[in-house]
Computed example of a mutant assay.
Amino acid sequence: MRYLIITSLLFIYSNLSMAQIKQIEDFKWKNRVLVIYSNEYSTSLLDSQSEEIKSDLEEFKVRDLIVLILEDEIVKSLNLKKEQYLNYEQILERLNVNSEDGYQNILIGKDGGIKMRKDQPIKNEKLFATIDAMPMRKREMKDKN
């Protein structure tokens, strides 16, 4: 019975915390985040990256990796089910993205630090290898075994 109550409380807490995401820092220590910035001149790069991601969403879930897309001055997600109220301009400023940059992929670790920045689409294998080499991810994999 005690286990059921604790599990229920953890489930409720995790759902509430995801429902209240208002800034990119709210993901810290819970998720890694891949931010994809695209302006109107780089939609083909965004389309390419989106297809790459969609081909392997389960692996994104395993790595606690949320995908945020910054396009047309709004923030969308490919794999975040809960409503989020992230501010487009605030994310650009926080990640030091110039609105004239055509395209950027920015990988943020669970610690909130920028781990990778590329101006071209990234293959899932490269992304996963980068994440899997991180100390926190190595601990996660070890703990699951």
Rank of each mutant, 00 (worst) to 15 (best):
S44H: 12
I114Q: 11
G112P: 09
I74T: 13
M141K: 15
R32Q: 00
S14A: 06
R94K: 15
K142H: 10
D132Q: 09
S44E: 13
G109V: 01
D111F: 05
A129E: 15
I114T: 15
A133W: 08
S77V: 05
I12T: 13
K123Y: 12
A19F: 08
Y103K: 04
Y3V: 09
K28I: 02
E59D: 08
L10M: 11
K54P: 05
E83I: 06
D101T: 11
L80N: 01
I66S: 06
V97R: 07
K61L: 03
N105C: 02
S14T: 05
N96T: 06
V67L: 00
K22I: 04
K82N: 13
K30P: 12
E40F: 06
S17F: 06
D47L: 03
L46P: 03
N79V: 00
Y13S: 02
G113L: 14
N79K: 08
G109A: 10
L107W: 07
K30R: 14
M136V: 14
G112M: 06
K126A: 09
L65A: 04
L4Y: 08
E58Y: 03
N39Y: 04
I122Q: 02
K30N: 13
V97P: 05
F128I: 07
K115V: 02
K126P: 09
Y88N: 13
V67I: 06
Y103P: 03
N15G: 05
I122V: 03
A129H: 15
S55V: 01
S55H: 08
D47T: 11
S99Y: 02
S38F: 01
I69H: 10
V62T: 10
R2Q: 13
K118P: 12
N105S: 07
M18L: 08
F27Q: 10
T7S: 07
Y37H: 11
M134H: 11
F60H: 15
Y85C: 07
K118E: 13
S14P: 07
E89M: 01
F11T: 12
L45D: 13
Q20I: 00
K118Y: 10
L9Y: 14
T7N: 07
D101K: 03
M134P: 04
E52T: 11
D47N: 14
S50T: 14
T7H: 12
E100M: 09
E89C: 00
L127P: 04
T43C: 08
D111T: 07
E58N: 09
P121L: 01
R63C: 02
Q23N: 14
K115Y: 04
Q84K: 04
Q20D: 04
D101L: 01
N96W: 01
R63K: 01
M1R: 11
I21Y: 04
